[in-house]
Amino acid sequence: MKKILLTLLLASSLPLHAAALPQFKAFIAGTKTLAADFTQTVSGKQRHETASGSMEIQRPGKLRWTYSKPFEQLIVGDGKTLWLYDKELAQITRRNQAGALGNSPAALLAGSNAIERDYQLREMGKTGDVEWLAASPKKADNTFESIKMGFTNNQLVEMELADSFGNLTRIQFKNLKRNASIPATHFKFTPPAGVDVVSE
Rank of each mutant, 00 (worst) to 15 (best):
E116L: 02
T190F: 07
R122A: 13
E131K: 11
F71H: 08
D37V: 05
K87D: 02
W132Q: 06
Y119M: 05
T41E: 11
T185S: 15
S52E: 08
L9V: 15
G61I: 08
F189R: 03
N113L: 11
K45Y: 06
S112Q: 13
R47V: 14
L108N: 03
E123R: 09
K45C: 00
I4K: 14
N142G: 00
E145Q: 13
P105D: 07
K126W: 00
S52Q: 15
N113A: 14
F38Y: 13
K62G: 01
G125Q: 07
R47E: 06
M149R: 07
N167H: 09
Q172L: 05
L176W: 07
I182K: 10
F189N: 03
T50W: 05
E72D: 09
L156N: 07
S54G: 13
T7R: 14
G150I: 01
L176H: 00
N167A: 11
L108Y: 01
V42Q: 03
K148G: 02
A51F: 01
L6P: 03
I57N: 03
S199I: 13
F71R: 02
R178A: 05
L84D: 05
L101R: 01
T41I: 10
S54N: 11
K25N: 15
T50M: 09
D196F: 02
G44E: 10
A19I: 14
L84E: 07
S164I: 09
Q120E: 13
G166R: 15
A110I: 11
T66A: 09
L9R: 01
G99M: 12
A134W: 00
A29W: 10
T41Q: 15
S146A: 14
P22Q: 06
T169K: 09
A162V: 14
Y85D: 06
V76L: 04
A134M: 14
S68T: 15
A114M: 04
R178M: 07
E88L: 13
A35M: 11
G150A: 04
L82V: 04
A19D: 02
F189M: 06
L121I: 15
A11G: 15
T143H: 04
S68R: 14
Y67T: 06
S68M: 02
R94G: 00
I4W: 06
L6I: 07
A51K: 11
A110V: 08
S68F: 00
F71C: 01
K177E: 10
A36F: 09
F71M: 12
G111A: 10
N175Y: 04
S164G: 06
A162I: 12
G44N: 11
K3N: 11
F189G: 02
P191F: 00
K174F: 03
S199E: 15
A26T: 14
K177Y: 00
V76Q: 03
Q73R: 03
D163Q: 09
V197M: 07
S181R: 13
E145F: 00
R117C: 01
N103Y: 14
A90M: 12
D163V: 12
S181I: 07
T7Y: 02
Q155S: 06
F27Y: 11
S104R: 11
G128K: 12
P105Q: 12
G128L: 07
N154H: 05
I75D: 08
F144D: 00
L34G: 02
G125D: 04
A180P: 01
